[in-house]
Structure formats: structure tokens, C-alpha cells
């Protein structure tokens, strides 16, 4: 899907502590190195939640700005990627909520003929995209923790141990939430998929 430089990241943890220390000392190059290593992972996390390129890029910037401020809070030995993605997730969810409120306000205050209804439900006309649209809506309606696990597992393509680190839950809980998410999606999409609920 993208090139997150997984091999590079897996080889990095030993150096992460040193890079973060240099960031605390105001080392720009160290900061840019961390950004280069993790920017795409963070973007995918943000985009999975926000589903908007610009909003996701804002969330990426916000995540790294927060990392710059809180680099000293990272505890060596823990998963840096998990810690960073947790920040990205929280920032993205906050952003999503703010945008949702703004969208509602915007929709309710605008005259009906000024609201781009077609744009809200992308490609909702074609039969092929009906299922995709229904699927996206069903994911949106999942309970938050189920949704996060599902998004991280299938959109970010994280392993369950990485999800558990990012969400600060056990691997077992992550798997359980994923199972519930899949079951709920199955129920909701049964008619569209032509299966028994």
C-alpha cells in the first residue's frame, strides 16, 4: 500500500532514544530523521480516521509538533511507534470530533440548496460503490474502540501487538475487539453482502 520503511523502523529502536535526546537538545536533523521514519505511518493512521487528505496532513503535523514538545516523556524500552501512533490517534480523533461538530453546524446553518449533498456520500449512485459506501458507514458506526482496532488492523495494517501498544490494551483485548468489530460489520452488511444476518 505504501512504503513505511518497516525494515528501517524495526532496526531503529536502539537509536530512537538517542534521536529523542538530540531532539530535546534542539537538534533539527534528529527531529527530521524521526519525521522521515514515521510520517507515512502517522498519515495512514490519521487518514484512516479522518478520511480527508488535508485534515490528515494537519494531524501529522500536529502529531510531530507534540512529539517535539514531549520527546522527554518517552520511556525507553517501550514501543516508540506505539507511543507515536497513540498520539496520532488521539489527535486525529480530536480533529474528527471538531470537524464533525463544524460540519453539523455548517449543515444546519446553510440553506438546503447550498449543501453539496452529492459530495457527502461519495459515489453513492453506482451499484458497485453502494457496498463500499455502506461498508464505510458501518465502520463509522462501530463502537470507538472496535473501530480503532479495525482501522489499525486493516487500514494501517498493524499487527495486534502494535495495536495493543498504540491503544494501551492487551493483545487479547485487541483481538477480542477486532472479533466484535468484524461480527458487527457482518451483521450490518448482511443484506448488502447477501448473507444471513
Amino acid at each position: 500500500m505504501y512504503e513505511p520503511r518497516d525494515a528501517e523502523i524495526k532496526n531503529e529502536p536502539a537509536e530512537i532514544g538517542a534521536l529523542l535526546k538530540r531532539i530535546q537538545e534542539g537538534d533539527r536533523e534528529a527531529f527530521m530523521t524521526i519525521i522521515r521514519l514515521y510520517q507515512q505511518k502517522v498519515f495512514v493512521m490519521a487518514y484512516s480516521i479522518l478520511r480527508d487528505r488535508e485534515d490528515a496532513l494537519d494531524a501529522v503535523q500536529e502529531t510531530f509538533l507534540r512529539l517535539y514538545q514531549k520527546a522527554g516523556l518517552y520511556k525507553p524500552g517501550n514501543s516508540f511507534q506505539g507511543w507515536l501512533l497513540q498520539m496520532a490517534k488521539n489527535i486525529s480523533i480530536d480533529s474528527y470530533r471538531k470537524h464533525q461538530i463544524k460540519r453539523r453546524e455548517w449543515v444546519t446553518t446553510k440553506p438546503l440548496d447550498e449543501i453539496p449533498i452529492a459530495a457527502e456520500d461519495r459515489a453513492g449512485d453506482s451499484a458497485a460503490s453502494d457496498l463500499r459506501s455502506a461498508f464505510a458507514r458501518s465502520v463509522e458506526k462501530l463502537a470507538e474502540r472496535q473501530k480503532m482496532v479495525f482501522v489499525m488492523r486493516h487500514y494501517n495494517e498493524l499487527q495486534f501487538n502494535e495495536i495493543s501498544e498504540a491503544m494501551r490494551i492487551s493483545v487479547g483485548t485487541a483481538k477480542s475487539l477486532h472479533f466484535k468489530a468484524v461480527q458487527n460489520l457482518r451483521k450490518r452488511l448482511a443484506p448488502a453482502l447477501g448473507i444471513e444476518p
Binding site: M1, Y2, R28, F31, M32, I35, R36, Q39, Q40, F43, V44, Y47, S48, R51, R53, A56, L57, V60, Q61, F64, L65, Y68, F135, A136, H154, Y155, E157
Partner: peptide
């Protein structure tokens, strides 16, 4: 969705972004 994300990822100038964020920071 993954295709959509892939397209979004491809549309970003990743080389320039670190400098932009560092400047802001």
C-alpha cells in the same frame, strides 16, 4: 479503503514535509 489511502499517501510530498514540520516546531 486501502486503495484510497494509498492514493492519498502517493499525493503527499514526503520529502518536503519534514522540513515544513521542523520549521513549525
Amino acid at each position: 479503503v486501502r486503495s484510497e489511502i494509498r492514493a492519498a499517501v502517493a499525493s503527499v510530498n514526503w520529502e518536503a514535509l519534514p522540513a515544513v514540520i521542523a520549521d513549525r516546531a
